[in-house]
Nucleic acid binder design. Sequence first.
DNA 1: GAGTGCCTATGCGTGTCCTCGTCATTGAAG
DNA 2: CTTCAATGACGAGGACACGCATAGGCACTC
Lengths: 223, 223
Amino acid sequence: MRVLVIEDETKVGCFIKRALEEESYAVDLCEDGAKGLEMALATNYDLLVVDLMLPSMSGLDILKNVRRERIQTPILILSAQSQIDQRVKGLDAGADDYLTKPFAIDELLARVRALLRRGATESPGILQVDDLILNPATREVARGGQRIELTLKEYALLEYLMRHTGRVLTRPMISEHVWNQDFDTFTNVIDVYVNYLRNKIDRGRTKKLIHTIRGSGYMLKAD
Amino acid sequence: MRVLVIEDETKVGCFIKRALEEESYAVDLCEDGAKGLEMALATNYDLLVVDLMLPSMSGLDILKNVRRERIQTPILILSAQSQIDQRVKGLDAGADDYLTKPFAIDELLARVRALLRRGATESPGILQVDDLILNPATREVARGGQRIELTLKEYALLEYLMRHTGRVLTRPMISEHVWNQDFDTFTNVIDVYVNYLRNKIDRGRTKKLIHTIRGSGYMLKAD
DNA sequence: GAGTGCCTATGCGTGTCCTCGTCATTGAAG
DNA sequence: CTTCAATGACGAGGACACGCATAGGCACTC
């Protein structure tokens, strides 16, 4: 799950970024409105978090531009108490939810989860492939009833694989949704993390779920 | 499916090339405008991906030149956010689609697929010859309901054969669409790969689909 | 300063791609 | 019909890239 945060107050922005990363999201942070819009259009984000008051371009304008390009990505607006009228405009212009500053970080996280859940294809809340179960709400993973501990990155990768079961996922596709813009194309990090996952999920089991499609990428599948 | 990518930023170019190759396209990469135009005119590509900002010759000029030669190859333009006016000019000059840099690789692949599909004869999405079925979306192949595993090259060759069922395909035609510019004319690689395909598709079946047209080339056909 | 998570780097095995050589088939000429 | 050359089929094997495994470095935390 890749998230873009457009927020000019450095401290607030970093705080949000950090919190989201701890929830295993891949996060990009942008402090400028115009540049933020560019990034939003450039990358296939799963969610946008946008402050209303921004330099060079307002959050409202970003919103309008994004929607004009027919991008359906859920958008969460951050507004100051004094901008209630703008907030209404924001919802009219296609925002999915708003949050008044200052806010509790837990609340932001809860709303982010809600928006991402809603965005998923009539999401069942819980992802399952064969006897492998992933619960996005609690970020708990288990196979055959046995709990599996994953690091943040491992979890993010597995969630992405499970949300696209049965489809071949190329490395560029994976890097785009599991890593942020700092990703270096010319390394084998993805392979390494797939290997980590294999050790925790497939190692020692007869039925392998993670498959390599040589020359293409990887696929999660029951058979 | 043979694709020419004209893009001067080495990193971006390599990234695109890799992604396309993992989707089984034969890809040539060119970092110079004038040379790119030359290549576009010299080879019968199935698709061109052209950056607007290029050394020695702009993407727009390449576009115009290609269209002036009455070449109908679909063209996908890559433009920076700041070149929106140029993009409009590009579409006017005969581009089929555009993408703003930096872009999501998923989106590029999706648009490439769309353009190539559009080019095909009102393609149904799934290719079928007798009981042989090929699904370009998942790159799955089956004959008589039985799944067949193919390597990237084998798949690329079969897809080309199936997209031109009933037509005699000469070796030059095949090499031009299935291999890239590194292809060595003086070998029998094509024969070898046709043989690989025969083993996986026709071997052991009464009804052969791959036919040799002596002195000309090969043909895929039900009878 | 031990522990953890993320990433880089490297050596190794294996599958893919391709080359080469030989054998089979075809079609034409005698 | 036989002979012969041209063409294609096909098996063997080698180079190389790809992906796997593992070790180690760096940053950050407690």
